[in-house]
Design a protein around this nucleic acid. Sequence first.
DNA 1: TTGTACGCGTTATCAG
DNA 2: CTGATAACGCGTACAA
Lengths: 334, 334
Amino acid sequence: MADGKSILRDVAVAAGVSLRTASRVLNDDPKVASETRTRVQQAMRELRYTPDSMARSLRAGTDATIGLVVESVADPFFSELVEAVERAASAERKSVLVASTHRDPERERAVVAQMLQRRVSGLLLVPTAGDHAWLETRSPRTPMVLVDRAAPGVDADLVAIDDAAAARGAVEHLLAHGHRRIGYVGDHPDVPTSAARLAGYRDALTAHGLDVDELLVRADCPDPVTAGQATRDLLSRNGSAPTALLSAATRCSLGVVPALHATGRTDVALVGFGDFAMADALQPGVTVVDHSAAAVGLAAAERLTERLADPGLPTTTTHVPVRLLQRGSGELPA
Amino acid sequence: MADGKSILRDVAVAAGVSLRTASRVLNDDPKVASETRTRVQQAMRELRYTPDSMARSLRAGTDATIGLVVESVADPFFSELVEAVERAASAERKSVLVASTHRDPERERAVVAQMLQRRVSGLLLVPTAGDHAWLETRSPRTPMVLVDRAAPGVDADLVAIDDAAAARGAVEHLLAHGHRRIGYVGDHPDVPTSAARLAGYRDALTAHGLDVDELLVRADCPDPVTAGQATRDLLSRNGSAPTALLSAATRCSLGVVPALHATGRTDVALVGFGDFAMADALQPGVTVVDHSAAAVGLAAAERLTERLADPGLPTTTTHVPVRLLQRGSGELPA
DNA sequence: TTGTACGCGTTATCAG
DNA sequence: CTGATAACGCGTACAA
């Protein structure tokens, strides 16, 4: 009757057993007479007993929560990732604590510290750029899986796409369609992911016997605005303008696409990294390397579950496959 | 040295004071000699002491966490909302626990129960459709703010946009541009938000002396696919096809826009509810009622903070203003 | 100003 | 199979 404020001791008293026994029933301990068990369970129901997660966590030393730290929860890629992680976590009856770094290493340290302090059972981290050796000294060696990119200075599991291979695939797609002057618009190479994509781009070109024209490489676009500007710059190069572009991040595509449309240069082939809403409603549709955030999130959550089960596991790197969604951008105009 | 496993007692011993004093320093209790204080703080630093949030929460009876339950974290609207809430929460030094209902009332009950059980300090809830009287019986009367829509059967704060007014504004925009046959594509009216938008649509039309042609109303589109189909249906009505459409949800726009483009009917004026990436890159740009999720999230978080400070506050409804982003869709073709 | 002792709700150790 | 009792790490009456 004491709605909600019923504690395990109340249940024990009501069922006429000791606290320990009530606890056993709560934890499905087999060593309890089935008759006693049903009596306790009945009491639990009548008292609307709800276990106190705080107390359990304090006792257990760890909380049934997984911490997820991404760049920005609002980013379409990461929000899809969050969703996948939440799905996987809830299947494991765990809650998800989220936080965004906004690419700020200090904020990253703060939110990670907060989560460790809360004794999350595991941590899923999309690291910012820069050294992460400080993570090695994390007090309770909380199981951790790096997501989407590695972090220099830390030895931990990593779940990501094979960026270099994906970029190579994208470039090869354009090459196969006859393009020879392929521009690159991407984020700074100090983000490992971006560096790998740029490397893949270069590799694909040289593997086909082409020189990389550095003037066509704009690896300095952290946001849509600069990406749009870079696009206009590239297209205005008289005589040496690219006939195709590789946009190495969704964020970049969000600037490249409008720039292409605004300048009327929809004849320029485009392959983007990461799918986005409306990509196929545009004319022409944008071919994308579909960087499934859901697949990455799911794989990361699964890896974390494995590690939680056996903390002694050697650290591994898991590459989530990507696929190219062809949407009619990519043809070389006659 | 005992890295991370240092507990407050260790600090006390190291500083040569009692546990009580160490606790006082930790909580910035003024009643402690400044000399003693610095000694304790030094000890904390040397031992790399980190307070155990679990223990504090257990003692305090409530956790420095706010629970946020939305429809789907991956939805652009809600992910922006989550981001805003997280920002506001971190300013209050609180963590955010997220969960998605996926519009499933059972899942909603489960995740809400889980959060209450975790003793979140407050709850931000985007309720599913249907009765929520069960929420009134929540054990510890956890402070709660409903977000984006009301929930029948619960008396709680609500932070949302004025859906009816926003829909009226959108329709008036189209009327002002000369349209008289305005179609409606939206979600089911059993979602209160949708019902209000539909009502606003009707009101605006009747206020202008127009009859509502029920054949132009398709309030049965919960997803982009059905919205796209509805769009094609409406446009194929010979002689009575609409010259303009109101898409009452971002999800719907994601189906309406491609349908318009695919059928080449870009002459049909469109006003959408909720902004989305690429809305202005499309030709013509889509005019939208900008339903700022960030503003809603922020306002909700602020309201929750107020209520946490004073649980006795009367419940209120806060309407977050919306604005119309004109983007050149809406003109009546000559 | 500082210290002692108890309790938050659970689980684990040991007896019986 | 079951039951007293001691922790988990911290906050707080109450006393000194």
